[in-house]
Design a binder for these strands. Structure first.
Lengths: 130, 130
DNA sequence: TTTTATTTACGAATGATTTCGTAGCAAATA
DNA sequence: TATTTGCTACGAAATCATTCGTAAATAAAA
């Protein structure tokens, strides 16, 4: 899972990646079961997506007897970073601050989480202020 | 520009919306000129997109003599809000805090902006702490 | 052993988005 | 007036993402 992603995974691919990031390795059956908790999806649809993702080197797989075990080949943080950058550009014209303010203003963030963010900012200011 | 958006604008539509949010009203020509600063795009491509957006009531238009003046029908903040919510769900499994931390950690945010965010958090804590 | 179930592979249909060529007008220019 | 330019409308091609049906192989169950 070393590869730095350069192209955006599609929405469906991202759903599968989320599952793989949680499970580590998983069979098509497991992944499809997880997906089925969220939406109606046929087994071969999931399979096909995994095959496409394999072609694109987004996932790797190992043969385990009769079935395949799939695994994410791109990291969670790195992918989030890539997507976040593109999202900030497209939606907030590149202003990460505007995004943060919107997120703090309107998304669910608890008091504890706000504290954590404050600490994080303090750390960052210390480093920036060298 | 009162409408609350409920469906995601596509990427191309969002590019056009960004321009309209900046210019207010604009002709196809103006919009296409702006787009051309960022990428290669044919005039009729831009025109077609605006016609589609008009059908979807994402933009309105008024005839001004021979040409049309287009205007965004969905608000900037409201659209950002909608997209941000979906993005947090898809990319950060619903955790707005994780998104904020990533954004602060790796996107470009200046010291002044960090201060502004700190003030914003302080305000918010005051309100939450009632 | 025969049948059923589960798996992979793959082609193709569907649907959405983007791009562009052409046509028809009307205005501006020669 | 005749020609060129610039605009809208629209169909259709191209591209991309998603979904699904079918076939082949093999394992599991009857």
């Amino acid at each position: 899972m070393e590869n730095i992603p350069s192209i955006k995974p599609t929405e469906s691919e991202l759903e599968i990646l989320q599952i793989l990031w949680q499970l580590g390795k998983a069979t098509v059956r497991q992944i499809n079961d997880e997906l089925s908790k969220m939406k109606v999806v046929g087994y071969t649809t999931t399979l096909k997506l995994l095959q496409i993702m394999h072609e694109k080197h987004i996932v790797s797989r190992t043969e385990e007897g009769r079935y395949h075990l799939y695994q994410a080949e791109i990291g969670e943080q790195q992918t989030q970073q890539l997507l976040l950058g593109k999202f900030v550009d497209a939606t907030f014209r590149g202003s990460a601050m505007k995004l943060v303010m919107q997120a703090l203003g309107n998304q669910e963030v608890s008091l504890d989480e706000l504290d954590e963010i404050k600490k994080f900012i303090a750390e960052k200011e210390k480093n920036l202020g060298n």
